[in-house]
Design a protein around this nucleic acid. Structure first.
Length: 557
RNA sequence: UGGGGUGUCGCCAAGUUGGUAAGGCAACGGGUUUUGAUCCCGUCAUCCGUAGGUUCGAGUCCUGCCACCCCAGCCA
């Protein structure tokens, strides 16, 4: 324990790990088992990454297991596409679940047996009230509920009715199975919660075997117990359900007694972390899909250029606690900058090309200049950049007049072409409308790899050969919403959609990258010097590369 | 007096037998620099929602108050 890198320097500490360490120390558990239990009704987002890192991170830290289980009890909302995407995302993040993928639906037989067991114990009954009636009988937050007229049906009648529900002899909505707990409980989730409902629809895993499906509150504790989960970690909104979780564990004959612990979900400003809202963005065509680079989904962040390590680092930075919080987007950006600054190869890419002619270079001149792949890591070697008589620089790097603060090219003054020579701008060519179309310059041949004598050249700009380059489209992104909290709407009746930033995508279709990027594969990441970090998009073709800006460089002035 | 939670720097977040406020992000100074980046050095809570109390001593214990979040799906 002498030399530790930045990713392990500060071992994560949080209240859940403390509970686990205590449980281990007291011999309560010999082995820790956690689980990540998504419902396959949407793509995973950055908030899920927090849960994934927590659950899998704990399994790694204590040499236990973390299982992947699909919480698929509501076939009406679930799809196989999501089952696939979720597995892809978890794997991509760098985690391996223990054993096979599990499905709550795989436990439907046992869950059904538990229900029968509860009925026999007089702890569950078939309700024949309608949903509306049930709501009335439930009472309110401040007023207790009252017992249903069907609450005292006999065990035999309940058994027969439940059997009928299972056999499809009872219509959807005509009956549900409820736990018999306490209609006057101050905790509403204990006022005879629904355990099973009738849904005569096809299930993506169990087909048409069932027409009754168990509710989350009944399914989850049973699934956890069957899998030997020791610590069932979920978000704060399930806290009020914990007594029900414990009730199920206590009253059903289960092989283990897992415990539920809750932590605060992740919120990020200027975006949304809610599967429902993300689905609205996709279905409404506000973004290109679940993996649109502007989406805070794992798939979107991946396409944007985020690395698995950066997302893990971010989750570690954010921590795990019980206080509601909203994390600043800047922290996510810091995590990816830190990773890419260390690991991304450097390259030149001119986003808005402006032609520059070096008049004292002959036509057809070609000179291969050496540039390091990574200035801070010589081991990565060098790349060749061709210098020709005509090159392109970024329009924003030239001004006819500027004050001393402007460290780029100005008419009648000098700047260095990075990894090349110092040049001087002598003349500006404009079109009829007055737009600058070309800058004529001369270069100083005695400035390659050394400073000119007797004068200081402060600026350095990137550039690309006008004849040897690769055309590309660069897509730059800014925040998806104009409000830090997208749910804060200007006037009543509006939704978070009213806060969408209409300018979150900016395309630069005529960018030119250095020749060495030819043939770069999707998801390859680069730092475009002086611009930021970019990743090759899968929309790239052999004629034109497409880049997504992951994040810009910090701007220090 | 419905129940359950949470309040420590602009944003996260440590602080676990009370002993005199970690760290990260951001920000701000300065240095290095052929990326206005990186890197390096430094600054950044006499105060822990608030008012009292206990104590030699409280973010940590007690009492009152305030603010915010969650719960009335046959969603998860």
């Amino acid at each position: 324990m002498t030399d530790q890198n930045s990713e392990t320097k500060t071992a994560p500490t949080n209240f859940i790990r403390q509970i686990i360490e205590k449980d281990l120390a007291q011999g309560r558990h010999a082995r820790i088992v956690t689980r990540f239990p998504p419902e396959p009704n949407g793509y995973l987002h950055i908030g899920h990454a927090k849960s994934i890192c927590l659950n899998f991170g704990i399994a790694e830290a204590y040499q236990g297991d973390c299982q992947l289980r699909f919480d698929d009890t509501n076939p009406a909302k679930e799809e196989d596409e999501y089952i696939q995407s979720i597995q892809r995302d978890v794997s991509w993040l760098g985690f391996e679940w223990a054993g096979d993928v599990r499905y709550a639906s795989g436990y439907f037989d046992t869950i059904y047996d538990c229900a029968v067991e509860l009925i026999k114990k007089g702890l569950a009954y078939v309700e024949s009230l309608t949903a509306d009636e049930m709501r009335e009988y439930r009472g309110t937050l401040k007023a207790p509920g009252k017992p249903s007229p069907y609450r005292e049906r006999s065990v035999e009648e309940n058994l027969a009715l439940f059997e009928q529900m299972k056999n499809g002899d009872i219509d959807e909505g005509a009956a549900v199975l409820r736990a018999k707990i306490d209609m006057a409980s101050p905790n509403i989730s204990l006022r005879d919660p629904t355990l099973y409902r009738v849904r005569k629809i096809h299930h993506h895993q169990t087909g048409d075997k069932w027409c009754i499906y168990p509710m989350y509150d009944f399914t989850h504790p049973i699934s956890d117990a069957l899998e030997g989960v020791t610590h069932s970690l979920c978000t704060l909104e399930f806290e009020a359900h914990r007594p029900l979780y414990d009730w199920v564990i206590e009253h059903c004959a289960l092989p283990a007694a897992p415990r539920q612990y809750e932590f605060a979900r992740l919120n990020l400003n200027y975006t949304v972390t809610s599967k429902r809202k993300l689905k609205d963005l996709v279905d409404g065509g506000y973004v290109g899909g679940w993996d649109d680079p502007r989406m805070p989904t794992i798939a979107g962040l991946r396409r944007r250029g985020y690395t698995p390590a950066s997302l893990r680092k971010f989750c570690e930075m954010v921590g795990v606690a019980r206080a509601d919080s909203v994390v600043d987007m800047g922290m996510l950006e810091s995590a990816i900058r830190d990773d890419l600054n260390q690991n991304a190869p450097r390259a030149f890419c001119v986003l808005r090309p402006l032609k520059l002619v070096i008049e004292n270079l002959p036509d057809g001149h070609e000179e291969m200049l050496d540039a390091p792949v990574h200035p801070q890591n010589e081991a990565l070697g060098t790349r060749k950049i061709p210098l020709t008589r005509e090159v392109f620089i970024d329009r924003e790097d030239f001004l006819e007049e500027a004050n001393k603060k402007f460290k780029r090219l100005v008419l009648d003054s000098e700047v260095r072409l990075r990894y090349g020579y110092v040049i001087r701008a002598n003349e500006v060519i404009k079109d009829a409308a007055g737009n600058i179309t070309e800058v004529r310059c001369t270069y100083d041949p005695d400035t390659l790899g050394k400073n000119p004598e007797g004068r200081k050249v402060r600026g350095v700009i990137h550039w690309v050969s006008a004849t040897r380059n690769v055309p590309c489209e660069v897509r730059r992104y800014s925040r998806l919403f104009n409000e830090a909290n997208p749910d804060k709407v200007a006037e009543e009746g509006l939704t978070f959609l009213s806060n969408i930033n209409p300018d979150s995508l900016e395309s630069l279709p005529a960018a030119l990258a250095e020749e060495s990027l030819l043939g770069a594969l999707p998801e390859t990441r680069y730092q475009f010097e002086r611009e930021g970090y970019f990743a090759v998009d899968r929309d790239s073709t052999t004629e034109k590369l497409v880049f997504n800006m992951t994040v810009g460089l910090k701007e220090g002035f």
